[in-house]
């Protein structure tokens, strides 16, 4: 029975940790399908995290979620204006947006919470067990006893799959991502599709930031996203630019991160920094294996 409790705990932690990664990766999948690589989602996630903290304090947790989505969209709109609108280098633009948001959120946090920081005064999203299903061993705690953000992420997999592969808009986005010139010749408004796909990606990054603050950490700290946006980009590659693939890849990263907690709890002699580095090392290994096999949208970052 002890083993079962351990496994249940590990599975639940994996899904909990995977949720922000999954949300960000679904958004970035939509963005990359349109031919845009947005390294600024790290910054959008950070902006979402701060906005979630501020919004939750004044309007409650759902207000926080709304603020976060708006902040993520605004951040990505800045990126889209420069990288898609003015057609500047996407990598450098994304790096700059992340850099700028690190500064702005540092400043904003000081302004909103003073020197003492936000503390644990933020109203958070509760865990919502789904009656019946939550009682299933292992699977119940993992998938049916999470915060509402996890359920949103599961639903988003289906929604994004439908959007990209079953709608005319999705077809045009994919065409823009494969070859802007060919898409334009077919009458697809490439720039407009790319901007909207990028801003949708920002909305998801904002949701990811809100998840970090409102259902995981419970507070805002400077640079709290710690590269999760960049890991989400690796997840998109591993997930082969498909929302369902992103879901599976995010679970893998969630599990790699959750290992840390399990090993720390068991008092293992392995230095904890190894587990801290594990998700990033895993991302590198995954890129080496996955990139050669599967190419992304042909027009990505061009």
């Amino acid at each position: 029975m002890i083993e079962l409790a351990l496994i249940s705990g590990f599975a639940a932690a994996s899904v909990r940790v995977a949720t922000p990664l999954l949300l960000a990766a679904i958004g970035e999948t939509i963005t990359e399908k349109s031919g845009v690589l947005n390294l600024g989602i790290e910054g959008a996630m950070l902006a979402g995290a701060l906005a979630a903290a501020v919004g939750a304090i004044s309007l409650g947790p759902l207000g926080g979620v709304a603020f976060a989505v708006a902040a993520g969209m605004a951040t990505s709109a800045i990126f889209a204006a420069v990288a898609v609108g003015a057609r500047a280098d996407q990598i450098i633009t994304g790096t700059a947006v992340t850099l700028g948001m690190t500064g702005l959120t540092g400043l904003g946090a000081r302004l909103a919470f003073g020197d003492a920081g936000a503390g644990l005064t933020i109203p958070t999203l509760p865990v919502l067990p789904i009656p019946g299903l939550a009682a299933i061993p292992v699977i119940g705690p993992a998938f049916f006893s999470q915060s509402v953000m996890s359920y949103v992420a599961f639903a988003a997999i289906a929604w994004a799959t439908w959007l990209l592969f079953r709608t005319r808009w999705g077809l045009e986005v994919r065409a823009a991502g494969e070859s802007a010139a060919a898409a334009r010749a077919m009458g697809v408004p490439v720039t407009r599709r790319r901007v909207v796909a990028t801003v949708i990606g920002g909305a998801f990054a904002g949701l990811a930031g809100a998840t970090l603050v409102l259902s995981q950490v419970g507070t805002f700290t400077e640079k709290m996203t710690a590269g999760r946006g960049f890991i989400a980009i690796a997840i998109v590659v591993l997930g082969r630019w498909h929302p369902i693939g992103a879901g599976l890849a995010a679970l893998l990263f969630g599990a790699a991160t959750a290992l840390q907690y399990t090993f720390q709890a068991s008092g293992s002699a392995v230095p904890y920094q190894l587990f801290q580095a594990l998700p990033y090392l895993l991302a590198l290994a995954v890129l080496a294996v996955a990139v050669g096999r599967e190419k992304g949208p042909a027009g990505l970052a061009k």
Binding site: D89, I92, A96, L99, G100, G106, L107, R110
Partner: peptide
């Protein structure tokens, strides 16, 4: 009493201006 990270805003604006200027 202004957090030093605030100057990262300057860095971001400089980078964005330069890449836009490069392209134009």
């Amino acid at each position: 009493a202004i957090p030093a990270v605030a100057v990262q805003v300057v860095q971001a604006v400089v980078i964005l201006t330069m890449v836009v200027a490069a392209n134009s």
